[in-house]
Amino acid sequence: MKRALFIAGPTASGKSALSLRLAEDLNGVIINADSMQVYKGLRVITARPSEEDEAKAPHRLYGFLDGSEVCSAAFWAERAMEEITKAWQGDQTPIVIGGTGMYFKVLISGIAVIPDIPEDIRASVRERCASEGSEALHAELMPLDEATATRLAPGDSQRICRALEVVKATGKPISAWQLETKPGPMQRYDEDGALIKLVLDPPRDVLYDRCNRRFDLMLDEGAMDEVQALMERKLDPTLPVMRSLGVPQLMAYLKGGLPLEDAVEDAKMQTRRFAKRQLTWFRNQFGDWKRLPAQLSESEYRDFLNKKIKKAVD
Rank of each mutant, 00 (worst) to 15 (best):
K234C: 14
E78M: 13
P183G: 10
L305A: 01
Q187M: 14
G257W: 10
P248C: 13
I117S: 00
N284L: 14
F215Y: 15
R21Y: 09
A163P: 03
G63F: 12
W88G: 09
K2F: 13
G14A: 08
E135Q: 08
L65K: 04
F75S: 05
E140S: 14
T85M: 12
P154M: 11
E232R: 01
L179Q: 03
S72K: 05
M218T: 06
P173K: 00
L305E: 02
S68Q: 08
K276P: 08
L18M: 02
L20H: 01
E78L: 15
T181R: 09
N27K: 07
A139E: 03
Q270A: 14
E119C: 13
E226Q: 09
R48H: 10
S297N: 05
W289V: 05
P49T: 05
F75C: 10
R302D: 01
R233A: 13
Q89A: 15
R204D: 05
A74N: 03
V125L: 13
R243K: 10
A275H: 06
A57R: 06
W88N: 03
N306L: 14
A312M: 06
R188A: 15
G101C: 11
R79N: 11
D190H: 14
A312L: 07
G90S: 12
I7L: 15
K308N: 02
G246Q: 05
R277I: 12
D288K: 08
A47M: 11
S35E: 06
L5Y: 04
L250H: 03
G184N: 04
V44N: 04
L144T: 01
L239C: 02
R151C: 12
K308M: 10
I7F: 11
L18A: 03
D116Y: 11
E135G: 07
P115F: 15
K197E: 06
S124I: 04
E226D: 09
T170Q: 05
L141I: 05
Q270E: 15
E69V: 15
R243D: 07
L144N: 03
I114S: 01
R48D: 07
V166K: 00
A147L: 10
G184A: 12
L200A: 05
Q178S: 10
K290E: 04
G99F: 11
E265C: 13
M186L: 15
P203L: 14
N284G: 14
Y103S: 06
M224Q: 03
R273P: 12
A17D: 01
F282T: 01
V70K: 01
H138N: 01
V125E: 05
V227D: 01
E226I: 10
P115G: 06
V167R: 00
D266A: 15
K255Q: 04
R79I: 14
M218K: 08
D66R: 09
M81N: 09
I97G: 06
R122P: 07
Q270Y: 15
R291Y: 06
Q249R: 07
G63Y: 12
L250K: 00
L198V: 00
